[in-house]
Design a binder for these strands. Structure first.
Lengths: 124, 124
DNA sequence: ACAGCATAGCTTGCGTAGCATGGTATACTT
DNA sequence: AAGTATACCATGCTACGCAAGCTATGCTGT
């Protein structure tokens, strides 16, 4: 049973929400985000993340700086929420709750017994 | 704050799950599905639903028949799960729970305080 | 010395699905 | 006759996930 392409579709949009949510906690760089959002059951691969970060920066939702952390060997690009991003994430989180509640309800109701059969003759 | 195109992205894949879940209860026709899945906070418009039903039928996940119900004025096309669709929906529902739990966790953890600031000098 | 691997970030091209818009056809209402 | 409701379908646009592949640095083992 192949559900992999369907899962890709399901992830659309969720990546943006998860990344912005992670950055709400504070500054992070690419691979750091990937480890926190792309693990088992995760929603991100690196080919998805970097274009996404670039886009969010271009759209003004994120700001970025290159920095050399004390324990790092090579420079990292650190991203943080802009004022606009900060304003957006609250609304997105509210919409996510609404959306996931709706889908979960639809999924769960389908467990409760059969509907009565539809009357009517099939047309051939 | 425009989140409408983001919401479209979020809906991708969810429509298929919701439709198959509704059909797990029993036979339904197009507008019937639309009323149960497309309302407020819903995930479907009719320009999405009909191509989706056609695709699912073509892929063998659904079977359909035209029928004249007693209370209807014009014929309706009734869809039901095929054996393959029945086998698939269980797996999809399991994956949905996993996925939505992951995203919800990411969203909710972002409420718990600030991370410690990253040490390191910005490179200019 | 140098091959291999880990860390870190980025680019290209493909495929898929949501959806706005518009269309067909029938039946009922005014 | 015109308008509205029911019911289904087709076209074209767009966005985004992701596989695959690229660059560059620094550490480690032989």
């Amino acid at each position: 049973m192949d559900t992999s392409s369907w899962q890709s579709q399901l992830r659309k949009g969720a990546a943006e929400l998860v990344v912005l949510s992670l950055l709400k906690e504070g500054e992070r760089y690419g691979l750091d985000i990937l480890e926190n959002a792309g693990g088992s059951g995760g929603v991100l691969s690196d080919g998805t993340l970097y274009p996404l970060l670039t886009r969010l920066e271009r759209e003004g939702k994120l700001e970025a700086r290159w920095a050399m952390a004390d324990d790092a060997k090579i420079p990292r690009k650190y991203y943080r929420l802009s004022d606009e991003g900060e304003a957006l994430i609250g609304e997105m989180q509210r919409l996510w709750h609404e959306f996931s509640a709706f889908v979960s309800r639809a999924v769960e109701e389908s467990g409760n017994g059969k509907r009565t059969a539809v009357r009517g003759r099939t047309i051939s």
